[in-house]
């Protein structure tokens, strides 16, 4: 089969996710025939925006109330219908892609390659295993190669490349009697998105309380960064779950990652050790985080943090 790539777009019916652009850039490593599928309700803006993006040769839009919340039970049958024309089916390894794509793969009776960080050839990729402590080069013999893309491993292509791809309407509908959307609780924030931020300041158990976590927020705001957290900080209720950085949370690779009061468990490091520059502030000189930190400051964070916040412009 020729290399024809289908990228499933992630969006909230208004905005295209950054992860989608990164997945497009991963798709461009496979070939130049890249079709994007936009499923949603009232999502023409999303389709038009994606038509302008680099690496996109065609946009398919399936606009229907059934796709409003991108439920896997609604989306998978549609992707399955389109799949026979594509050699590769890609989605971002976000909670959206992780939820949907294995369902698609199983319906196609093919395996999936999860969290791909490098594309070696059209059938071979590299993906991390064991919380990123090993890298597996995997070759698949499946007819359709289904993969989710780790966005921190790929750059973002141009969002407006000067050419506009064709947008094709698909009048498809599905029958989903299995699941029903009830509600969403969004954590609103003025700060940049965690996985897209140039600077991330993360706090751990060492901060001691939710009130003290404000120091992390203050430092992040001074640096124009996002805030993250270790599992301990999330479990203790300092911040919401979706800010957890690590094997089971978000994977980030910002230019600057500042870990405050985080010891550096294997599971946390899995989410941040590809950051360009890592700074650790911790009172325990033996904390494992210092083994990956470019700059470590051993000291009481209750003294260090106010001083740092104060001295930054």
């Amino acid at each position: 089969m020729d290399t024809r790539i289908l990228v499933i777009a992630e969006h909230d019916n208004e905005k295209v996710s950054l992860d989608t652009y990164k997945t497009l850039s991963a798709a461009s490593c496979l070939g130049d025939d890249v079709t994007v599928l936009v499923m949603g309700a009232a999502c023409h803006n999303v389709a038009d925006t994606l038509a302008k993006a680099q690496y996109v040769s065609k946009v398919l839009i399936a606009e229907n109330e059934q796709f409003a919340h991108l439920l896997a039970e609604s989306c998978a049958p549609l992707v399955l219908r389109l799949a026979k024309d594509f050699s590769h089916i890609l989605a971002p390894a976000s909670t959206f892609g992780k939820n949907l794509l294995p369902r698609v793969a199983a319906l196609l009776d093919v395996g999936q390659l999860s969290d791909v960080i490098q594309i070696v050839s059209t059938d071979t990729v590299i993906r991390p295993i064991y919380a990123g402590n090993a890298l597996a080069k995997v070759k698949t013999s499946d007819v359709h190669k289904v993969m989710t893309i780790r966005s921190s491993a790929f750059d973002c292509g141009e969002t407006d490349c000067g050419e506009v791809a064709e947008v094709i309407e698909m009048n498809e509908s599905v029958n989903n009697a299995l699941s029903k959307y009830i509600s969403t609780q969004k954590n609103k924030s003025e700060r940049p998105e965690l996985s897209a931020a140039r600077v991330v300041v993360s706090g751990g158990r060492g901060l001691g309380s939710k009130e003290n976590f404000a120091m992390v927020e203050k430092l992040a705001d001074k640096l124009g960064g996002a805030i993250g957290a270790s599992r301990a900080a999330v479990d203790a209720g300092f911040v919401s779950n979706d800010l957890q950085v690590g094997q089971t949370g978000k994977i980030v690779a910002p230019e600057l990652y500042i870990a405050v009061g985080i010891s550096g468990a294997i599971q946390h490091m899995a989410g941040m050790k590809d950051s360009k520059v890592i700074v650790a502030i911790n009172s325990d000189p033996d904390a494992p985080i210092f083994q990956v930190a470019d700059y470590g400051l051993v000291g009481d964070l209750f003294e260090v943090m106010p001083e740092l916040i104060d001295k930054l412009p």
Binding site: G111, L113, T124, P128, I129, G132, N133, A134, L135, A136, K137, V138, K139, T140, S141, D142, K273, I278, P285, F290, Q291, V292, A293, D294, Y295, G296, L297, V298
Partner: peptide
């Protein structure tokens, strides 16, 4: 899927205090 090879991830240079 055939695992062609498993390697250790690139090691980070240890930094300074």
């Amino acid at each position: 899927q055939q695992v062609v090879e498993v390697t250790a991830p690139p090691k980070r240079e240890s930094g300074e205090i």
